[in-house]
Design a protein around this nucleic acid. Structure first.
Length: 381
DNA sequence: ACGAATGATTGTTA
DNA sequence: TAACAATCATTCGT
């Protein structure tokens, strides 16, 4: 009936068909399902009379997708419109052009098929009319009968058209889900980007919730989008929490990595603090962290972090490095507790429910200030 | 080829 | 509304 369209459909649908065979699996509830639902609902209420909401829906959709656009027979205007409607920005233009190409293909097939049907309809009508005229010589034929025949023919053909529209809609939906789904063209982040993100994560292990500003900065550093940063942290938090043991090594790695800078920062901060309040006794042995003193250092940090930092940069650094040092110290030798209310062991600040204790909840010890990331900017929140 | 890792999406929840 | 949890689809290491 419409072999060309079907070949396109088959090409696009290969995977969908596969997916459909997984119908019985409980996890199967993907976008494909939406496609299917839509198609089913379309099929469900098919042959109706003039107004037919389903037909209108189909027409609207085809129009919206630029398939049954203003002009017949190809044309790039509709494609451009479709692209503009769906994408907007012209980044991954390769994928987009591919998408557009397919859409154009579908549209062309749709129009040629539609035209063919119309033509066939007309031909068939005239043919029947001729037959009737011939018959009218042998028997009386009322105009009513002619009208009825024509009506039947038109209904038949319009139902065929309906099917064509359904198939086209289906093809477009599948095309969309195939090309516009970012999961299908996922790329891993660069090594450096992952490095940066991991560094932030493990040095903020007690509260790995970067503020909006911090996210922006990370995004800039990693050349990814803010939402990608959000995704990354969302995934990281959940996966870390789910299997802390698995991430232990990684945590150690990054903790050690930033330990030196942390120590430096802490030392600097302590020095800073000393200048402000000379009561603090020992300078924190710059370079490496000797455990006996570090406890005091943390105390200092905590109090310092609580209020007095003006040099925002330093304050932020200190807070962020505290976690790192904690981790390192924890790894090196126990140092069981006494400085945080919360256990120092790997599930750092994971509470009983398995969540990171919220910065908003007034916890026993950790400074009730907002997340570390937001320190370095004025922000009202 | 296979399983683990990983980025993205979706639905739910507080 | 952001975070979580589950899941998908791709990539990567073997």
């Amino acid at each position: 009936m419409k072999p060309a369209l079907f070949s396109v459909l088959c090409e696009i649908k290969e995977k969908t068909v596969l997916l459909r065979s997984f119908h019985q699996f409980p996890g199967w509830k993907v976008r494909e399902k939406k496609v299917e639902e839509m198609c089913l609902s379309i099929r469900g209420a098919q042959e109706e009379d003039p107004p037919d909401p389903q037909l209108m829906r189909l027409d609207n959709m085809l129009l919206a997708e630029g398939v049954s656009g203003p002009e017949k027979g190809g044309g790039s205007a509709a494609a451009a419109a479709a692209a503009a409607a769906s994408g907007g920005s012209s980044d991954n233009s390769i994928e987009h052009s591919d998408y557009r190409a397919k859409l154009t293909q579908i549209r062309q097939i749709y129009h040629t098929e539609l035209e063919k049907y119309e033509q066939a309809c007309n031909e068939f009508t005239t043919h029947v009319m001729n037959l009737l005229r011939e018959q009218s010589r042998t028997r009386p034929i009322s105009p009513k009968e002619i009208e009825r025949m024509v009506g039947i023919i038109h209904r038949k053909f319009s139902s065929i058209q309906m099917q064509l529209k359904q198939s086209t809609c289906e093809a477009v939906m599948i095309l969309r889900s195939r090309f516009l789904d970012a999961r299908r063209k996922r790329r891993n982040f660069s090594k450096q980007a992952t490095e940066i993100l991991n560094e932030y994560f493990y040095s903020h292990l007690s509260n790995p919730y970067p503020s909006e500003e911090a996210k922006e900065e990370l995004a800039k550093k990693c050349s990814i989008t803010v939402s990608q940063v959000s995704n990354w942290f969302g995934n990281k938090r959940i996966r870390y929490k789910k299997n802390i043991g698995k991430f232990q090594e990684e945590a150690n790695l990054y903790a050690a990595k930033t330990a030196v800078t942390a120590a430096h920062a802490v030392a600097a901060a302590v020095q800073n603090n000393q200048t402000n309040s000379p009561t603090t006794p020992n300078s924190g042995s710059s370079g490496s962290f000797n455990l006996p003193n570090s406890g005091d250092m943390f105390m200092n940090m905590q109090s310092l972090n609580g209020d007095s930092y003006q040099g925002s940069q330093v304050g932020a650094n200190v807070q962020s490095q505290v976690d790192t040092l904690r981790h390192v110290i924890n790894q090196t030798g126990g140092y069981s507790d006494g400085l945080g209310g919360n256990s120092l062991y790997s599930p750092h600040n994971l509470n009983a429910n398995g969540g990171w204790q919220d910065a908003t909840t007034p916890s026993s010890v950790t400074s009730p200030t907002e997340g570390p990331g937001s320190v370095h900017s004025d922000t009202s929140n």
